[in-house]
């Protein structure tokens, strides 16, 4: 075989090698990226009216805590999550439902009867009775739930995702 044709054969093989390797890399690589990031692309939304029991259970004037659970499917497993919050019944029908999740890093806040505020145990933040930030690092007031009263029972609207 002459030298020149030898070199062109080499180049040909080089091109084929690179081409086939890239095809294989892409044919496997692209699905693999989809496979790895798939859970991040799934939208998990859920919403429902959660019954909290008869309205008279909630006293006028001071916040009373409540909690409920929702289950969601993560992969092949059902995860049961608990959520909590406070109901402040200002008048007979004027209600304020606050989430107990601190808006800073999701610690659970507690109602401090003496100081009349919600205290977060993590970074010493305080929220007022309407959920507004009094001091500390939280960027926003406590989340509110929409409420409704049906036949004397209190419901809150839960939304996720």
């Amino acid at each position: 075989m002459a030298g020149s044709s030898r070199i062109s054969r080499r180049d040909f093989v080089k091109v084929v090698t690179i081409a086939l390797s890239s095809v294989m890399g892409a044919a496997l690589g692209i699905p693999v990226i989809g496979y790895l990031i798939d859970p991040a692309l799934k939208v998990q939304s859920s919403e429902a009216w959660i019954p909290l029991g008869p309205l008279e259970n909630f006293p006028l004037g001071s916040p009373k805590s409540f909690s409920f659970t929702r289950s969601s499917v993560n992969g092949w497993e059902k995860t049961v999550n608990s959520y909590g919050g406070f109901i402040l019944r200002k008048t007979e029908t004027d209600l304020l439902a606050l989430s107990s999740r601190c808006t800073h890093l999701s610690c659970s806040v507690n109602w401090d009867e003496g100081n009349n505020n919600y205290a977060c145990p993590c970074h010493a933040a305080h929220f007022g009775s309407e959920g507004e930030v009094l001091d500390g690092p939280p960027p926003a007031p406590l989340d509110r739930y929409e409420t409704k009263i049906e036949e004397g029972n209190l419901f809150i609207f839960f939304q996720k995702g």
Binding site: V32, Y35, D38, W76
Partner: peptide, 22 residues
């Protein structure tokens, strides 16, 4: 969980069927 996790790979994850199939 082994069985369920594989069902998830086959049906729940994008291209899981391809990776496991190969």
């Amino acid at each position: 969980h082994a069985y369920d996790s594989i069902q998830y790979i086959m049906n729940g994850v994008a291209f899981g069927w391809l990776i496991r199939g190969i």
